Simulated assay, not measured.
Amino acid sequence: AAAAARLWAASAPRRRPLSCDSCRLFYPEDPIKIVRGQGQYLYDEQGAEYLDCINNVAHVGHCHPLVVQAAHGQNQVLNTNSRYLHDNIVDYAQRLSETLPQKLCVFYFLNSGSEANDLALRLARQYTGHWDVVVLDHAYHGHLSSLIDISPYKFRDLDGQKEWVHVAPLPDTYRGLYREDHPNPAGAYAGEVKRVVNSVQEKGRKVTASAQAL
């Protein structure tokens, strides 16, 4: 605790004038200064090792040697968008298509989960002609305005819930609405989603998409 307090005292004065208050730290009461990652672990400036159960960016672990080598090699050659012809884009799409059903073999390549979720929402609305979305409570989908609107984790602290957003309870048998002692918690949570969808339809509207990510 004393070491963390010293770390906070040293880092906070530099961070405060350059970072807005809404850019909050993890563990603000006991802050961690992470300086390195390797595999499934993160390391602070004192060398302490932490099992990383939070970050969702490094899907194959931090600093995977093959990923580092490939990124370094590509950055030495070209780093541009996908609106030019390039064999790598087609080769990658072909490899993906071999793992998926034929009807899922048209690809959009984006640079973040937020962009992907925003595009998915736009495609759903374009295809269905409807606007309403069903989301799970506590869900978070990204930092774009369109995704804040469908993320209870965020919108409850900001502008509130839009009238076209409908929240279903998170299926949590530990702290949720239906717990382990319920005879059929899966069916009960599915029933809650059905109830939400029915309430949308009773208003003469239809659901364009359901968003479940956390």
Rank of each mutant, 00 (worst) to 15 (best):
A3S: 11
A3D: 15
R6C: 10
W8F: 07
W8M: 04
A9F: 06
R16S: 08
R16N: 10
P17D: 14
S19K: 11
C20N: 07
D21H: 09
S22N: 13
C23H: 06
L25F: 12
L25Q: 14
Y27Q: 13
Y27L: 07
E29T: 10
V35A: 11
G37K: 07
Q38F: 00
Q40H: 13
Y41C: 15
Y43Q: 02
Y43M: 03
D44R: 13
E45A: 05
A48Q: 08
E49N: 03
C53K: 07
N55P: 00
N55G: 14
V60C: 05
V60P: 00
G61N: 05
G61M: 03
C63G: 03
C63V: 05
L66F: 00
A71E: 12
Q76C: 12
Q76R: 10
N79F: 00
N79C: 09
T80M: 03
D87G: 06
N88T: 09
N88K: 09
V90G: 03
D91Q: 07
D91I: 13
Y92P: 00
Q94A: 14
E98W: 07
E98T: 13
T99E: 11
T99W: 01
L100N: 11
L100T: 07
L100G: 06
K103Y: 09
C105I: 09
E115F: 03
D118R: 08
L121P: 00
L121V: 09
R122T: 02
R122C: 02
L123Y: 06
W131H: 15
W131C: 12
D132F: 04
A139T: 15
Y140E: 08
Y140G: 12
Y140R: 12
H141M: 04
H141W: 02
G142R: 01
G142E: 08
L144S: 07
S145N: 15
L147W: 14
D149Q: 11
S151E: 05
S151V: 08
Y153N: 15
F155T: 02
F155S: 12
R156Y: 14
R156V: 11
L158M: 15
G160Y: 04
G160D: 12
G160W: 14
Q161D: 01
K162N: 13
K162G: 08
K162V: 02
A168M: 03
P169W: 00
P169Y: 09
P171V: 05
P171E: 09
D172Q: 06
T173H: 01
Y174N: 11
Y178N: 05
R179H: 05
H182L: 05
P183Y: 01
N184H: 05
A186P: 01
A186L: 03
A186T: 12
A186H: 12
A186K: 10
A188D: 01
Y189L: 04
V196R: 05
V197P: 10
V197S: 06
V200G: 06
K203I: 01
T208H: 12
Q212W: 05
Q212C: 03
Q212A: 03
A213E: 04
L214R: 14
